[in-house]
Nucleic acid binder design. Structure first.
Lengths: 144, 144
DNA sequence: GTTAATGCAAAGCATTTGCACACGT
DNA sequence: ACGTGTGCAAATGCTTTGCATTAAC
C-alpha cells in the first residue's frame, strides 16, 4: 500500500497518521507469511525504538476493523472441537462467532493447480465461509 | 460413535477406557456446533461430578492425536495477520505451523448449493489446505 | 487546545504442567 | 501390582485494559 493510499484510508476513517501505524503496516506488507503480533513487533522494534507490544496489538486490530488487514486462524482465541472427521466445511458467523457445518459434495473434490503447490503435500482441506447467520440478520434488521 | 467402536479405537491406540473419555466423546458427538473446551465441560459436569477442566483439555487433545476428533480454528493459539485482503487461500503446514498464501483463480468462484445456506448470508470464504511443507518433508525424510 | 494514540504495568483468560492419588489393565 | 489417567493448583503465554503521557489534528 502506497503512502498516499494509506493516508487516504486513515483520513476516511478518522484515524491519526502515526509513525507506529505507518511502520506496522509496512512491516506486515513486507512479508507474506502471516506473522504473529510478536513477529511484527520483532520486525519493527529496531527501527522504532520504544514501541510497545500493546501498540502492535491495538494497531493491528484497528487495521482489521477498517478492513485493510485480515486476521486469520484465531477468530476468538478459543479452540473448538468437532467429532465429525468426515470432510465438511464451515459457515462462520462474523457477528456472533457461531460455527455451522456444511456438508456439500460439490465442494469435496477441489484440486488447486497452482505451481506453488508442487512442493506442498496436501492431506486435506476445509473451506470457511464467512458471513452472517439467520438470527444475527434478524437481530440487525430494522424493527417496525 | 458406538460403544464398541470406541473401545476398539482405544485398545488399538493403547488407551485406557475411562468414564471421562467415554463421557467427553459422547458430549462432543451430541452437538454439531463445534463446542469449546468450556462448553464440553459444562455439558458433562452434571453427569460426571468432580471432573476437571484439565481432563477435558487433555482428553480432547488425545482424541485429536488419534484422529477421532478435529480441532478447528486455533492451530497454535496465536493470532496471525495478513496485509493481503484480496481473496486467496492458505496452505497450513501441520508440522511446523507455517502458513503460506495460495492465489489460484480456479478456486475463487465457489458457490455452495446446500439448502442449509438459504438462511446464511455469505460475504467471503477462504480455503485452508492442511499438509506438509517442503522443508518439513525434507526434515522427516530418512537420511542415507 | 482538543481529542485520539501510545507506553507501561497490571489484569484477564485460555491453556499447560508438575505432582500426588485413583483407576483401568 | 503396574502404569496410565485424573484432579488440583500453580504456572505459562497470549491478549486486553486502565491510566498517565505524548503526539496528531
Amino acid at each position: 500500500m502506497k503512502r498516499n493510499e494509506f493516508e487516504d484510508v486513515c483520513r476516511k476513517n478518522g484515524l491519526a497518521l502515526t509513525i507506529q501505524r505507518r511502520t506496522i503496516l509496512d512491516a506486515l506488507a513486507a512479508r507474506t507469511d502471516h506473522p504473529t503480533v510478536d513477529q511484527v513487533y520483532e520486525d519493527i522494534k529496531e527501527n522504532l525504538k520504544g514501541v510497545s507490544r500493546t501498540t502492535v496489538y491495538r494497531v493491528l486490530e484497528t487495521f482489521v476493523s477498517i478492513g485493510i488487514v485480515r486476521k486469520i486462524s484465531n477468530p476468538e482465541s478459543k479452540a473448538r472441537f468437532d467429532a465429525d472427521t468426515k470432510r465438511h466445511h464451515h459457515l462462520t458467523c462474523m457477528h456472533c462467532g457461531k460455527v455451522l457445518d456444511l456438508h456439500d459434495s460439490t465442494l469435496d473434490n477441489l484440486a488447486p493447480n497452482s505451481g506453488a503447490l508442487r512442493e506442498f503435500e496436501i492431506f486435506d482441506y476445509s473451506i470457511t465461509f464467512n458471513g452472517r447467520c439467520a438470527s444475527c440478520r434478524d437481530d440487525e434488521a430494522p424493527k417496525i
